[in-house]
Design a protein around this nucleic acid. Structure first.
Length: 732
DNA sequence: GAGT
DNA sequence: CCAAACG
DNA sequence: ACTCCGTTTTGG
């Protein structure tokens, strides 16, 4: 029995390991910069899902659901699990090492040229002899210099970019410029005939560009694309076909002969219409490869329209002496570096030149971090005023609308969800905390450095945030989402009564659908209910319906004693439009917890059960202890079961209970953590002081003395937390 | 994954 | 005892 | 290397 449960645990742990392993493999996959690397990893994964490679982390007997100790093979794994590791984290790291090494090998074979970056974000758990992991291609700017990516990856090499607007006053654009420089492009600050690409901000259109250049048209060998183009090329590692809808610049009628005809006065007509944007244009540094002769091209470029004032100067800069920002063919690297240095220190100034403020809606003109302007070199103070480290000090309303980081948050949230499906609760928490601070930061975070300065955001998340801000997506996530294998796990974890461990076992035992479970798996009563009403329990409850459920309870309760009070808590109290369940606090001004429990259990519950309002009891407080009741309820004319939680609260605990039952959970944890750092303790019954704890924080020896339980606000006060309305307690 |  | 659940 | 909230209830 003891051993039996131990084996169960072992199996579960191994199952967990397996998922961690596959997770890491999946996610690590995209860290490989080269497509070959990706393919190799994909193969690895393929075998894993085929069931063979996964044995590295999971012995077959785990799949069979048999005791590990019965097979010799298992002993290693069993040791792994039991000995060093009560901490799953460690278990995970071990399996990770295996997978990483296995994964790294084929990648490396392909002869990637550069060494691992010094700050390799991956946990370097690889054994001594292991092949070092291939480093990231993206060398980031540092100390004001652009680090060019290795030459082989300079997808923009030989390309000459002109941005519109052509400055870096906007952080987003500055980022784009920085990036294209890193990838080998040359940025021209003045118009000239070398320019091969024009990158137009999203909110501007082609006619504005033409007006700015004072021309009626551009030669069509010049690639004119919307702002998202460079980022996507970079993220996909090659120059994409620019003639795609998402790169279209408003007002730029591409490859439409009729429109070309309109410009026929300026340029030679037929040829133009003939080969507008041949599809092969993607990879063509330097020579536009348009059939038109270079002569023609240069002719045209000379016809190019320059602003009258500049025209003389620039027009003559045939050979590109144009001191401003020409890149000689030889010295592009130096030039890029020089440009980058300039770029870095360009002070924020209004783009004087074009009258129409391009002020991108997204680009906060007021750069964040306020005054510290040039102190870009701030290393990483991250010295927050102690209490600012607690999310409960800030809170938030949760409305992502209008938040400049909404897109980033959304993607990080998806990542968190994904990790949640994998059972990595700690990482999920980290993500949720980071999301919380991003949500409070009312300025778009564009760069790694900006992100790094924020609390709860470290090196790895900062990199991700930068990538998201820049590309509006995260390759890791794309990858994670692409893998359908975990859909089953996700599905199972939605069952009430099943968490990651249980769901994993079900998967390991070969179950694939909820019906499989009903048929074959051994289920607890609650789990069976959870499966039978899977859709009910996993659908959102409209606010109005939450109120109706509350009203039913309130009515029944006041029928027993008019002084009873019913408070709907949870996300309802936080003001959300829908809720996942219904949380009711039942209280009475002068009835103690014992009598409260008796009344609820012996009168309310039976009554409401009899009227078919309560349809299931999942976790009912039974004995003379306890204060909560979990079950399901159903409105009279509805067939949908809703999860209903009741909390029985004597009046002197109502304040603490409100905090507890209002959440959100991140806020609660944060409050409790803050309390613990002040030698106090917070739970659903009250706030206690003089708590004596074992070692740093944990394990209490003395329960402490309750200082407050009745008054929600006073609990905040005592903790030194500024009051937050329920709607502002959304931290995650 | 972040902070100590 | 552990897993799962609640906010 | 270690912590990351504190509690209640079920069920093996």
């Amino acid at each position: 029995m003891a051993t039996g449960s131990k084996d169960d645990t072992g199996d579960r742990l191994r199952a967990k390991q397996a998922f961690y392993a596959s997770l890491d493999a999946t996610l690590a996959e995209i860290d490989d910069e080269e497509d070959v690397g990706r393919k190799a990893s994909a193969e690895l994964l393929g075998r894993r899902s085929g069931g063979s490679a996964v044995t590295v982390a999971v012995p077959h007997d785990a799949v069979l659901g048999r005791s590990a100790s019965e097979t010799g093979l298992a002993s290693n794994a069993a040791h792994q699990v039991t000995k060093p590791i009560t901490k799953l984290d460690s278990a995970r790291r071990q399996s990770n090492a295996i997978v990483s090494a296995a994964r790294a090998a084929p990648t490396l074979m392909k002869g990637t040229t550069f060494a691992a970056a010094p700050s390799d974000p991956m946990p370097s758990a690889a054994p001594p002899g292991a092949i070092p992991k291939v480093g990231r291609a993206i060398k980031r700017k540092r100390d004001g210099l652009v680090k060019l990516v290795p030459e082989a990856q300079q997808i923009f090499k030989g390309m000459h970019f002109y941005f519109f607007p052509n400055d870096d006053n906007n952080p987003a654009r500055a980022m784009r410029i920085m990036k294209v420089l890193e990838y080998g492009a040359t940025w021209h600050k003045e118009w000239n005939h070398h320019i091969t690409h024009v990158i137009v901000d999203r909110q501007l259109d082609y006619s504005q560009l033409l007006r700015s250049l004072n021309v009626s048209s551009l030669p069509d060998y010049i690639v004119t694309v919307a702002e998202g183009y460079p980022a996507e090329c970079i993220s996909l590692r090659y120059t994409l076909e620019p003639n795609q809808k998402r790169f279209h610049v408003k007002g730029y009628t591409i490859s439409v002969p009729s429109s070309a005809a309109q410009h026929k006065e300026n340029f030679e007509p037929e040829k133009t219409s003939l080969e507008l944007k041949p599809a092969g244009r993607s990879v063509m540094p330097r020579q536009p490869e348009s059939p038109r002769t270079t002569d023609e091209a240069s002719e045209q470029s000379q016809m190019l329209p320059l602003e009258p004032s500049q025209a003389p100067t620039t027009a003559n800069t045939e050979r590109g002496e144009a001191g401003s920002s020409m890149a000689g063919s030889t010295n592009e690297l130096d030039e890029a570096l020089r440009q980058a240095k300039e770029l870095r220190y360009v002070p924020l100034e209004d783009d004087g030149e074009d009258g129409r403020r391009p002020s991108t809606s997204e680009g906060p003109t007021t750069d964040d971090e306020g005054g510290s302007e040039t102190s870009v070199k701030k290393r990483k103070p991250k010295q927050l005023a102690y209490q600012d480290k607690f999310q409960c000090m800030k809170g938030g309303s949760g409305d992502n609308d209008g938040n400049p980081n909404a897109a980033t948050i959304s993607i990080l949230q998806q990542m968190a969800d994904y990790y949640g499906q994998m059972g990595d609760e700690w990482r999920v928490r980290a993500y949720r905390k980071a999301i919380g601070t991003l949500r409070n930061h009312h300025t778009k975070v564009w760069t790694k450095e900006q992100a790094l300065a924020l609390p709860q955001i470290g090196e790895r998340l900062a990199v991700k945030i930068e990538e998201i801000a820049h590309t509006n997506r995260l390759r890791r996530l794309d990858n994670a989402k692409a893998k359908p294998a975990d859909q089953i796990l996700q599905n199972f974890m939605g069952v009430y009564g099943a968490g990651f461990g249980t769901a994993s076992e079900w998967v390991a035992q070969g179950y694939r659908t909820l019906d499989d479970l009903l048929d074959k798996a051994s289920l607890t009563d609650n789990q069976r209910i959870g499966i039978e009403h899977y859709d009910d329990f996993n659908s959102r409850i409209p606010r109005a319906e939450v109120e109706q459920h509350g009203a039913v309870i309130r009515k029944a309760l006041t029928n027993i004693d008019p002084k009873f009070e019913v408070i709907i808590g949870g996300s309802y109290r936080r003001g959300k439009a829908t809720s996942g369940d219904i949380d009711c606090i039942l209280t009475h001004p002068n009835i103690d917890s014992t009598r409260l429990r008796t009344i609820i259990l012996q009168r309310l519950i039976p009554t409401l059960t009899k009227t078919n309002f309560l349809v299931a009891a999942l976790a009912a407080t039974s004995r003379d202890e306890g204060s909560k009741w979990h079950g399901a309820s159903r409105l009279r004319h509805s067939s949908t079961w809703r999860r209903l939680d009741l909390l029985l609260v004597p009046s002197d605990e109502i304040g603490a209970a409100l905090i507890y039952f209002t959440g959100d959970d991140v806020f609660n944890r944060s409050l409790r953590l803050l309390a613990s750092t002040k030698g106090m303790r917070l739970n659903q019954r009250g706030l206690y002081r003089d708590v004596v704890r074992e070692q740093r924080g944990r394990g209490k020896i003395s329960e402490g003395v309750r200082v407050e339980g009745r008054d929600e606000r006073r609990i905040f006060e005592v903790l030194g937390v500024p009051w937050r309305e329920p709607g502002d307690r959304i931290c995650g």
